[in-house]
């Protein structure tokens, strides 16, 4: 992908608690596009976002964001780089002691010296973009799961970032809320020219909006390409994941001793 890559990972190795999460992952995420990172639960998709955001450091390998080598950045430079990033957490991660309006205003108040009336207008514009201008007085405890994520989305675009990372945005959402989020992610990407990284295991929704996708399993990328290329991918493991088959290269049964022996039928002696 070369110079068009906004994020570039090369031979990234990362282990935690003695378990190897990534075993030499190489991936380029194109600028201005939606890239979906998919894979079964527990494969380290969220960990990948944290490596990109500099919250974790790889054991070895390179993580570059907009030309900056993230693991080598000084604390001050890392925080400056993060001002260009937005991240939508799975839980929304709204500040529970602040109202919807103040949550969205938070990054503006911290990072800019804009006058109050301008902050007011920007916050309302961002809330309008996610359809929640009327909910600005509510507290996070009064919001539904879908509304929480939309407010968090408004907050993450408050500073007009270049990159936005979505951590499981569709998990646990009803069909309407899911449809709203799919529309928002697509519209925000096209209207703001964002680079979007979407981590999810919801295959149809992710493939419907992404320009490029990759599937991670067992610390490796097992398939990548455009949605059409992935759907025609020859790997059985990729097809098992995309079609949600219960058995295949990833077995239904956890490895166990011979069944006859376990049930005391004498067959496994």
């Amino acid at each position: 992908m070369g110079s068009n890559a906004y994020i570039s990972l090369k031979d990234v190795v990362f282990s935690r608690s003695g378990r190897r999460i990534f075993d030499g992952i190489t991936l380029d995420i194109p600028r201005g596009k939606i890239t979906a990172i998919m894979g079964p639960s527990g494969t380290g998709k969220t960990t990948l976002l944290r490596l990109i955001g500099g919250q974790l450091r790889p054991d070895s390998g390179s993580v570059q964001v907009d030309g900056h080598e993230v693991p080598r950045l000084k604390r001050k430079d890392l925080y400056a780089l993060r001002e260009k990033m937005g991240m939508l957490f799975q839980s929304g991660a709204l500040f529970t002691d602040l109202s919807v309006f103040e949550n969205v205003a938070f990054p503006l108040r911290v990072h800019t010296k804009l006058p109050e009336d301008m902050i007011h207008d920007i916050v309302l514009m961002k809330l309008e973009a996610v359809g929640l201008r009327g909910a600005r007085h509510l507290m996070p405890s009064e919001l539904s799961g879908g509304m929480t994520r939309r407010v968090a989305l408004a907050r993450s675009i408050a500073l007009d970032p270049e990159l936005i990372m979505y951590d499981e945005p569709f998990a646990g959402q009803d069909p309407i809320a899911m449809g709203v989020l799919v529309k928002l992610i697509r519209d925000l990407n096209s209207s703001m020219g964002l680079t979007s990284v979407l981590v999810s295991h919801d295959v149809p929704e992710s493939l419907s909006i992404c320009h490029y996708a990759c599937i991670i399993s067992d610390g490796q990328i097992i398939g990548e390409g455009t949605p059409e290329e992935l759907k025609a991918h020859p790997s059985d493991q990729v097809q098992q994941f995309l079609q949600g088959q219960p058995d295949g290269p990833v077995p239904f049964h956890y490895p166990a001793d011979d069944a006859g022996k376990d049930f005391g039928l004498g067959g496994g002696a």
Binding site: G53, Q55, R82, F89, V110, R155
Partner: peptide
């Protein structure tokens, strides 16, 4: 636990100071 500290970090705000 509710990722508020993480989200602050990702907004470029140091939770140790804030």
């Amino acid at each position: 636990a509710t990722e508020q500290l993480s989200s602050m970090e990702m907004m470029g705000v140091d939770p140790l100071r804030r």
